[in-house]
């Protein structure tokens, strides 16, 4: 394009075209998508969070909401359900990171040449392949009172069965455990590919210098796994913050809202059967977005630093 338009122009103008216009032309499709599907919804959500609106347009297609300023946010500050969701999101974030050491451990364990190792690897990877909905259902049955395996086990050991999903204090941890199952598999596969790229000569050299066990892992292997660790942290943090499907499948946020997380609470408020408070839901979404932005900016800053240092 730049060439076609620049043929008859002066050389400097042509260079200006190439240097300035071409990148924008190449970015245009991406920017268009980004604006329509990312930026515009963000602006819309933020705008909506200042309104009180039940999601209905009237018969003439007019918006029926009323502007309430920051009242939605003020309400969030005193809303006990919001507080519960925030705490639960924190638990998700903290405990989800357990997927890293667990995934690394399994990856190292599987990183050997034994007959049939491919089969073992795929079996360990299996939980990540099945849908989150299925994971949720399996664990809901696992925990189910009266007939679930976990319930029967606790009944056999302690004499009284524990129904995790009916217990307001345990329910979030039960769901996180279900979420960790596929997440560990995901982290494992990231580390397995990372382990493939560990330089064998460095291992060899370290071994000659007498390193083994923990020291080998900590000083030689792990530094080489840094890119894999970085990606694993990103997917785990984001996976924890956007946890929704498991909560929705396993408990619907219950009992009495004890297992809500921000994304589920937003859905409940905006689109749930008793919700349709679009403005309030949007306010929750904005808060979740702000929390995510802290992490996302951190990741972007790190990536930018790595690139400029190179």
């Amino acid at each position: 394009m730049a060439q076609a338009t620049g043929i008859s122009a002066a050389p400097s103008a042509r260079r200006w075209n190439q240097r300035t216009l071409a990148p924008w032309l190449f970015m245009a499709p991406g920017l268009f998508m980004f604006t329509v599907y990312v930026l515009w919804p963000i602006i819309q959500s933020v705008t909506l969070s200042f309104y009180d609106w039940n999601g209905l347009y009237n018969q003439n297609g007019e918006f029926t909401g009323t502007f309430v300023g920051i009242r939605n946010y003020a309400e969030l500050m005193t809303d006990p359900a919001f507080e519960t969701s925030l705490w639960n999101n924190f638990y998700w974030l903290a405990l989800y990171l357990l997927a890293l050491p667990a995934g690394l451990f399994i990856a190292i364990f599987l990183n050997q040449t034994v007959t049939g190792i491919r089969l073992y690897k795929s079996l360990f990877f299996f939980p990540f392949v099945i849908s989150q909905v299925v994971v949720g259902l399996i664990f809901a049955w696992f925990y189910a009172p009266n007939f679930g395996l976990f319930y029967l086990l606790t009944e056999a050991i302690t004499g009284k069965g524990t129904a995790i999903l009916a217990d307001p204090d345990l329910v979030t941890f039960g769901i996180i455990a279900a979420g960790l199952w596929p997440q560990i598999a995901y982290v494992m596969i990231l580390y397995l590919t990372g382990l493939n790229n560990v330089a064998p000569d460095q291992i060899e050299a370290a071994r000659l210098d007498g390193a083994k066990g923990w020291r080998m892992l900590w000083y030689v292997v792990l530094p080489q796994l840094r890119p894999a660790t970085f990606i694993a942290v990103i997917v785990t943090v984001i996976g924890a913050l956007r946890s929704f499907d498991l909560v929705s499948i396993m408990t619907n946020g219950g009992p009495f809202g004890s297992s809500r997380v921000l994304s589920y609470y937003m859905f409940e408020m905006a689109l749930g059967e008793f919700g349709f408070r679009m403005g309030y839901g949007a306010a929750i979404a904005v808060v979740l977005f702000a929390i995510m932005m802290i992490f996302i900016s951190g990741f972007i800053w790190k990536m930018w630093r790595d690139e400029t240092e190179r």
């Binding site: 009495f256 059967e273 408070r277």
Partner: peptide, 23 residues
């Protein structure tokens, strides 16, 4: 309850009833 009471109020009420039955 969920038809007599306003939707948001109904939900808050039902969560309260369920909680009372548990705690």
């Amino acid at each position: 309850w969920d038809r007599d009471a306003d939707a948001e109020y109904a939900k808050a009420g039902m969560e309260g009833f369920q909680r009372f039955l548990v705690q």
